[in-house]
Design a protein around this nucleic acid. Structure first.
Lengths: 138, 138
DNA sequence: TTTATATGTGATAGTGTTTGTTACATTAGG
DNA sequence: CCTAATGTAACAAACACTATCACATATAAA
C-alpha cells in the first residue's frame, strides 16, 4: 500500500504558521508543499475543529494558529487527522475457529500493538515547540 | 491505505503444511484461505526460492515443507515476502532545504525506525514452532 | 503415449485509501 | 458590487494488494 504523508505535511505547516505569526491562505500553503489547495483544506479541517487552528473566510482570509507550539503535541495532530492506521501488516480472518490462525494473529496483533504503543508514546512526548527548536539548530 | 495480509496468511499455511506433513496444492491452500490459487502461488514463490518450501509440478504436485518449523523464524518469512513496508506514515519531501521539514522528518524517521526495529526483533525471536506450539494449547 | 492435473507467469480488472482537480456555494473585506 | 478566500461535493489518478483468466510447461498415472 501506499503511504500517508499528511502527518509530515501538517506538522511542517503548523510550525511555519506559528513562526511566521500571520495568516496564510490554502493556496500559499499548497505552493509551499507542492500540493493542491483543496488537499490542504481537507487535511487541516480536523485541526480547526479541535481548536488548534482558526480560519477566516473571504478576502484576505486564511489559516492562523490558535495555540502556541508548546501547547500542541504530535499526538494531538495525529488524532486530528482521525488517527489513521500506523501499520500495514494486516490479519487474515478466514477461519475464525482455526487455532493456528488464532495463534499467528495473536502474535501479529501483539507485535503491532507494541509498535503502535511505542509510536504513540513518542508522539505524545513531542511538542511542536520541540520540533521548531530542533529546526533552529540546523 | 489498505493493509497487507500476506504475512498472516503465509505463516498460517506453513504451519498447516508442516503439521499435516504432506503436499498441498495451491487450490487446496487457496480454499483454506478463501483466496485465489494464483495469489497463493505468487505469495509463496519467495519461500520456495529461499528453500523453505519445495514444489512439484504436474499431477499430484503441490507444495511441501523443506525445513522443520523450528528452523524458520517469522523474520525469514517476512524477508521472503520481499520485506514489504511495515509503516504507513510517510514523509513529505517538498522542500529539501527547509530546516523545519528536515526536523519533522528526522523525528518521524526516528520513530518509524524504532518501531520497525521492535517489530523485526520480535519477528526474529519467534519461530514457526513457537506459533505451532501456542496453537496446540488452544 | 496420452490424459489429467499441477505449477509458473503474464495480462488485466477490482478494491480501498490518499492525492489531484474541477466546480460551485458561502462568506467577508474593500 | 467585486474580488478573494474557505467549505465541500464529486469524480479522476495513482498505488499496492488481491482476483481472475489464459496458457505454457511439467509430470504422475492410466
Amino acid at each position: 500500500m501506499s503511504q500517508d504523508a499528511r502527518l509530515s505535511r501538517v506538522l511542517h505547516v503548523l510550525i511555519h504558521l506559528s513562526l511566521r505569526n500571520r495568516t496564510m491562505s490554502s493556496a500559499e500553503i499548497a505552493k509551499m508543499l507542492s500540493i493542491n489547495p483543496v488537499v490542504v483544506r481537507r487535511m487541516m479541517a480536523g485541526l480547526r475543529d479541535r481548536g488548534y487552528l482558526q480560519t477566516t473566510r473571504g478576502s484576505s482570509g486564511g489559516w492562523y494558529m490558535a495555540l502556541e507550539l508548546d501547547e500542541i503535541t504530535v499526538n494531538d495532530v495525529y488524532e486530528a487527522l482521525n488517527e489513521p492506521n500506523l501499520l500495514i501488516t494486516g490479519l487474515a480472518h478466514d477461519h475464525p475457529t482455526c487455532p493456528v490462525e488464532a495463534s499467528v494473529n495473536d502474535m501479529l496483533n501483539n507485535v503491532n500493538a507494541e509498535a503502535e504503543l511505542l509510536v504513540l508514546r513518542r508522539y505524545r512526548a513531542t511538542t511542536l515547540a520541540d520540533l521548531a527548536q530542533d529546526a533552529m539548530k540546523k
